[in-house]
Design a binder for these strands. Structure first.
Lengths: 237, 237
DNA sequence: GACGACTCTCGTACACTGTGCGAGTGGATT
DNA sequence: AATCCACTCGCACAGTGTACGAGAGTCGTC
């Protein structure tokens, strides 16, 4: 049981809750709120300390370094994602609901976009979700390693769709979706690719602000259906 | 042509190359090398200045801020990815080759994992690749918006697979793949999910270091085939 | 050749960051 | 009452991104 482990908050047990002192949950929650309010760059140990009514460096009693703090907040996210109980729906509807939930949660906490490539998902919420997804795929008829492959494929699709979406919103959303500015930007950067430019401008013109979301949702759905079809084909063979 | 645009290096033209002074390419290349050598946290303006034999703040003549520097390096990455000329192979083989190339390039430059959720891909190399992918999908028989949907789906799958892979390597790879340490870690963090734990340990045990890569490649291929099957189904209807 | 304009460099300075250290505090155990 | 230990936190250090403004070098025009 003892011996060197991989470095992560989750490889050490939380300190037992005592009368003085904070809990991991408290700290995770506060970090999450700060991240939601001010983004990844807005989070600093000193600000977090202030928010908790504590001295800046007190946090280091509970956490080895800033990355571990981010691991805590990251796992909170996984806890917000919902997955219907497997038996209630067909597997396609079940995992679709998961995919949509995951997308929404990520868009609500856009800073995860920069963390997924840096921190492993080893927290209890992430693992619990992984466990439940595996059960869902097994119930659907997948077997052995295919369970994990299917799982990975679905999750990859969602991540890969949402992460660039976040980057896009971060750059374009800041300017309050100024259509003319965007058209000019496109015309400038894509001036050597008339084909691509035409499509970019077209999409930019014909769609109102609120319809942008719908369009993205349609695109998300297209890919999701394709992925599920592909997985289903694997199931039948 | 004038007017406010979206904030990105690519919305401003590069300064014309003069006798003194660096070029964007020079700076992009140096940034890339520094990132490859020292990672995202290892990149600082001062270090980059030193590497270029320039004063630290000279870089700000060519670039508005550090993010724009990262945009330059990010686009270099897109330039390393290869896509066979569409007509030479069937569309499935063509986009498969692209997917594998993209995966390898990303794994070679693991710091991109943290950038994709933060910076838009508006550089010439990224757009050129996007343009060529669109042509490939059109040639395959996709039409209208389906071209872009298919494009997005494929790219999402690759990104979503590789990004967590990078995070994993960053945490586990540092400890030189100590098998026992990993087993202990798993047993600790996944102790409440016996099913998942069994699989984690099993995979960890039965596989040698070099086979880890193979296993990941197999998993990647499984999902890729599923995605392509799903897209092909869309093509037939 | 002289002058002015412009491109480009860079030293200094400022506010801010993560975090090591070690002295301090206050409640529980003996 | 004495001891221990979980916990707090001020200070300090090295490092960060970047604003600013003074200078150097090069060009075009008279």
């Amino acid at each position: 049981m003892t011996g060197k482990q991989i470095s992560s908050v989750w490889t050490r047990d939380a300190r037992p809750a005592r009368t003085p002192g904070r809990t991991r949950e408290e700290i995770a929650r506060a970090t999450l709120e700060l991240l939601d309010a001010e983004g990844l760059d807005g989070l600093s140990i000193r600000k977090l300390g202030a928010k908790l009514g504590a001295g800046a460096t007190s946090i280091y009693w509970y956490v080895e370094n800033k990355d571990e703090l981010l691991e805590l907040a990251y796992d909170e996210i996984w806890g917000e994602i919902t997955l219907p109980i497997p038996q209630s729906l067909g597997w396609r509807d079940t995992v679709s609901a998961f995919a949509y939930s995951m997308r929404h949660v990520m868009l609500r906490h856009p800073w995860v976009g920069s963390l997924i490539g840096r921190l492993p998902a080893l927290g209890p919420n992430a693992l619990s979700m992984s466990d439940r997804l595996r059960k869902t795929f097994r119930l659907a008829g997948f077997d052995g390693m295919d369970i994990d492959y299917a799982n990975a494929t679905l999750t990859a699709y969602v991540l890969g769709t949402v992460i660039p979406e976040i980057a896009w919103s971060a750059t374009m959303g800041g300017e309050e979706l100024d259509k003319d500015a965007m058209r000019e930007t496109f015309e400038h950067v894509a001036r050597d690719f008339p084909d691509l430019l035409e499509r970019l401008v077209e999409v930019n013109e014909e769609v109102t602000v609120s319809e942008t979301d719908t369009l993205r949702a349609v695109s998300f759905d297209f890919g999701l259906v394709a992925v599920l079809d592909g997985l289903e084909a694997r199931l039948r063979s």
